[in-house]
Design a protein around this nucleic acid. Structure first.
Length: 157
DNA sequence: GCCAACGTTGGC
DNA sequence: GCCAACGTTGGC
């Protein structure tokens, strides 16, 4: 890794089920703890995030899966408090406050795209080949997006 | 609601 | 450390 990588903005895609938490909810709350992620790879990506990184907000498990807007990372990764809450769906009995297992970052709202970029549109576009979310069976709920792909999408809204 | 793809668990 | 069984994700 080159020394300046620490200062370079990174780009991500984060999935959410709109029936549970949608981009409209994020807009209303302005900022939210992206809690409930219980996958090590996804957690590790959140740990790699830096303040100011930009994030596509993606709606999954819904009628039209799509990138629906833009958010940004507003905190570094810190222990996800839902892992300690017995009443929460994401409670993890194996986790302790001394040794938390799961982290989350906070995501701030930036914008909602006028037109969502649907998964089928993402798959159709030649400029986005290799983008993770297009891959069959891609279940990763937090994933990196290359700068090239990120900017290409923003330039073609 | 179906089911394929994937990640995790646990017996051995 | 293998791998079958199981649970979950997520497009369709």
């Amino acid at each position: 890794m080159k020394w300046y990588n620490n200062f370079m903005k990174k780009y991500w895609l984060m999935k959410t089920e709109p029936s549970c938490f949608s981009i409209d909810d994020l807009k209303e709350e302005k900022q939210t703890a992206w809690s409930g992620v219980r996958n090590y790879q996804a957690r590790n990506f959140m740990r790699e995030m830096s303040l100011g990184d930009e994030v596509f907000i993606y709606h999954s498990s819904c009628a039209v899966p799509a990138i629906v807007g833009l958010g940004k990372v507003v905190t570094k990764a810190y222990p996800d408090k839902t892992q300690f809450d017995k009443k929460d769906d994401h409670y993890d009995p194996k986790s302790t406050k001394e040794k938390p297992i799961w982290d989350n970052v906070d995501i701030g709202y930036m914008k909602t795209f006028k037109e969502p970029i649907t998964l089928s549109a993402l798959k159709f576009r030649g400029d986005l080949s290799g983008m993770l979310v297009r891959e069959q069976g891609s279940r990763l709920s937090v994933q990196p997006v290359s700068e090239k792909h990120f900017k290409s999408i923003l330039e073609n809204l």
